[in-house]
């Protein structure tokens, strides 16, 4: 990402592809990542996990290369003293207590003061009170937090977190974000993968958008958000007088087009969905139409990714 930067990237992904039989999971992807928080964003099946696994040393690329902190990551165990990886699987050794899991990681990382590091990591995820309970009895969110503590216990320079917020509730997410920001301020590199834009929009400085195994967009969060906002939204409206409502909606700037389908339902296309939401009840009131149902047809992250990918291919063509 951000190829204009002149400093040495923490993570360098160069022409990486990965295929499984006939399926191409990651297709000729290149980017650099620098200190700070970077979100790897994409719909399910976009190749985020496959890519993150290759960056984390859990799998080989079929083609291309990955370097972390200047070194290859596969068959180079020494690099793991500087990297922390939290995989997408929420599995833990269920017979261990939360503290034992963190301690296991600290000892395998040969942390100098194990007990102090374990205390600090558990404190960071706010699980001191439950640290002596078996992981098998933890809730999903608690497991994720204890896994995060185990990932952080050796103070890695690079953190790779695959869907770390799954299973966490809103207060836990806020706490997680606070922890991530604190770590990022120390000059460390954090890569978080997610398929939920809202999950990372307040957290990430930079975003890499993946779709169908390719980078659809990469850059500062605001620029990406702007691109996302350019996508027209499609909303289906059912009303008792659809044509009257349609005529009224066409008078609004926010509305790009209105069509009536064979079931007399309106398909309203708009680039300013917030404005449309605000105006719709007013138009209905002014035209004396009763709205029966409003349904976004493509208000999903997948459709946004699709749109961005199409824009990208058009740009290349």
């Amino acid at each position: 990402m951000t190829g204009s930067r002149t400093s040495t990237p923490t993570i360098s992904v160069d022409g990486v592809s990965r295929w499984f039989g006939n399926i191409v999971a990651v297709n000729d992807v290149s980017f650099n990542i620098f200190p700070g928080i970077t979100a790897l964003l994409g719909p399910n099946g976009a190749g985020k996990t496959t890519l993150l696994r290759m960056v984390g040393g859990l799998g080989d690329p079929s083609d291309g290369g990955v370097r972390v902190l200047g070194d290859p990551v596969r068959r180079n165990p020494a690099i793991f003293s500087r990297i922390g990886v939290m995989t997408e699987h929420e599995s833990v050794y269920e017979f261990l207590t939360g503290r034992e899991l963190v301690e296991l990681n600290a000892r395998l990382h040969r942390v100098p003061d194990v007990m102090a590091a374990v205390d600090e990591a558990i404190e960071l995820v706010d699980l001191a009170a439950d640290q002596h309970r078996r992981l098998g009895g933890y809730s999903r969110g608690m497991r994720q937090r204890m896994r995060l503590a185990a990932t952080l216990v050796h103070s890695p320079e690079v953190l790779l977190l695959d869907e770390p917020l799954s299973g966490t509730d809103p207060p836990q997410r806020l706490r997680f974000m606070e922890v991530m920001r604190r770590i990022a301020r120390q000059g460390r590199t954090i890569v978080i993968s997610s398929h939920i834009l809202e999950e990372v929009e307040t957290l990430a400085d930079r975003i890499i958008l993946l779709t169908a195994g390719k980078v659809a967009a990469a850059g500062e969060y605001r620029a990406i958000r702007q691109k996302l906002n350019e996508q027209p939204y499609l909303v289906r409206v059912e009303a008792d007088q659809p044509r009257v409502l349609g005529a009224g909606l066409m008078a609004i700037d926010a509305v790009e087009s209105v069509e009536v389908d064979e079931d007399d339902r309106l398909h309203v296309r708009s680039r300013e969905v917030t404005e449309l939401q605000r105006a719709l009840p007013h138009v209905a009131r002014d035209t004396g139409v009763r709205i029966l149902r409003v349904e976004p047809l493509d208000d999903s992250l997948e459709s946004l990714f699709e749109y961005l990918a199409q824009q990208q291919w058009r740009g290349r063509g």
């Binding site: 165990p77 020494a78 793991f80 833990v92 990681n105």
Partner: peptide, 15 residues
């Protein structure tokens, strides 16, 4: 089976 192998291999220790 339970995907816990990364806890061991993602460590700075020889295989």
């Amino acid at each position: 089976d339970d995907h816990t192998l990364p806890y061991l291999v993602l460590k700075p220790i020889s295989r």
